[in-house]
Amino acid sequence: MAATRSYHHGDLRRAIVSATLEVIRSDGVAAISLRDLARRAEVSHAAPAHHFKDKAGLLTAIATEGFELLADTLAAVPADAARRLREVGARYVEFALNYPAHFEVMFRPDLLHGDDPELTAAKERASRALYSGVEDLPADRRGPDVQRTGLAAWSLAHGFATLQLSGSLPPLDDDPAETFRKLVDDHPSQRSYGRPPLEG
């Protein structure tokens, strides 16, 4: 058996998170066990529990990191970008495909400590970045209910990303984010209603 590695405090926490993300990518969330993670990271069996208390604490840390990464991704969309809300949706899709293990955990409240303050703050930051695309629309284009329009936009991007990750979509001719942009541009609601949720 390999000797236990010597980690600085922060490095050990990162090593456990990285090992967890690897397990999620290869085998799914159900395969996670703190004892197995300790073996993978070559640390003592007590190390994961010392840093995260329990499995839910570990997954909460990963979800928190995921929401922070999502917020950073969405905040990077220029404020003056053409059709900004559509671009926010496309970046959401890109995030999901670039960070599939985080994405799998982030929207599983049954696995998390929902009252964790860091998780709450990260979720709120990501939500503000997501809804900013709606709020930036002229009043006559965002509709009377910003939350409802934002929910429609989020559902469209999240659903597309989830279908792509699960392998449920047919083969795409383009990069998934570009396909998403084209779907929004070509949707019949453009012609029927003129202002689909992600037009911006």
Rank of each mutant, 00 (worst) to 15 (best):
T64L: 04
T64N: 04
T64H: 04
E65C: 02
E65A: 14
E65I: 03
F67G: 05
F67S: 03
E68L: 11
L69R: 15
L70E: 15
A71V: 10
A71N: 08
T73E: 14
T73S: 14
T73A: 15
L74N: 08
L74E: 08
A75K: 13
A75W: 01
A75M: 04
A76Q: 13
A76V: 10
P78T: 11
A79H: 13
A82I: 07
A82C: 01
R83T: 05
R84I: 06
R84Q: 12
R84C: 05
L85H: 13
R86M: 13
V88M: 07
V88K: 03
G89K: 02
R91H: 14
Y92I: 00
V93W: 04
V93C: 04
E94R: 15
E94S: 15
F95H: 15
N98C: 06
N98L: 11
Y99Q: 14
P100V: 08
P100Y: 06
P100N: 07
F103C: 01
F103T: 06
F103G: 01
V105S: 09
V105R: 06
M106H: 07
M106N: 07
M106G: 10
F107I: 03
R108G: 02
R108P: 02
P109N: 04
P109F: 04
P109Q: 05
D110N: 04
L111H: 02
L112Y: 03
L112K: 03
L112P: 02
G114Y: 00
D115E: 15
D115V: 09
E118I: 00
A122V: 11
A122H: 08
A122D: 09
E124M: 10
E124W: 02
R125K: 15
R125E: 12
A126S: 15
R128L: 12
R128D: 14
R128E: 13
Y131E: 06
S132F: 05
S132K: 12
S132P: 04
S132G: 14
V134P: 03
D136I: 00
L137W: 01
L137M: 15
P138T: 09
A139N: 03
A139M: 07
D140P: 01
R141F: 06
R141M: 12
R142S: 03
G143S: 12
G143L: 12
P144G: 07
D145K: 07
D145Q: 10
Q147R: 12
T149I: 00
G150W: 01
G150Y: 00
A153M: 02
A153L: 02
W154M: 08
S155N: 09
S155F: 00
L156F: 11
H158D: 12
H158Y: 14
H158A: 09
H158T: 00
G159T: 12
G159E: 11
A161T: 06
A161D: 03
L163Q: 13
L163H: 09
Q164A: 14
Q164R: 15
L165W: 10
L165G: 10
S166L: 12
S168I: 00
S168C: 10
L169S: 06
P170G: 07
P170Y: 08
P171M: 06
D173T: 13
D173A: 15
D173R: 14
D174M: 13
D175G: 02
D175M: 02
P176C: 04
A177M: 03
A177P: 06
E178M: 07
T179Y: 02
T179P: 02
F180N: 04
V184C: 13
D185H: 02
H187G: 03
H187M: 05
P188D: 04
P188I: 11
Q190D: 07
